[in-house]
């Protein structure tokens, strides 16, 4: 099957090699730092807050209640079931 080997294009090979060694050329520029903070910190933290709030308020819905879940998640303010009902 070796006879079927593709005729390689040096430009494509160089382009792919460049993509594979991206970490060697990476520099922390202001733009990169902004992007890293946005997608590495802010977006995950936003998702975390949304998910944790959703799970913490699950008692006010008809979703099953878990004996182990004390509805206290790091960084998320606790809202008790009573206050949820009053509000």
């Amino acid at each position: 099957m070796g006879a079927m080997q593709v005729k390689k294009n040096p430009y494509v090979e160089a382009w792919v090699a460049g993509r594979e060694t991206l970490e060697e050329r990476f520099r922390f520029t202001p733009r990169n730092i902004r992007t890293a903070l946005l997608f590495g910190v802010l977006v995950p933290y936003g998702i975390y807050l949304l998910v944790a709030h959703d799970m913490a308020e699950s008692k006010s819905t008809d979703r099953p209640e878990w004996k182990h879940l004390k509805r206290e998640f790091p960084g998320v303010p606790v809202r008790s079931a009573d206050s949820a009902q009053h509000s």
Binding site: P44, I47, Y48, V51, M55, H68, L69
Partner: peptide, 14 residues
Amino acid sequence: SFYYSPLIYTLSII
């Protein structure tokens, strides 16, 4: 497992 479940959900969604 319950305590860390929001963290796990976040990492899985990401």
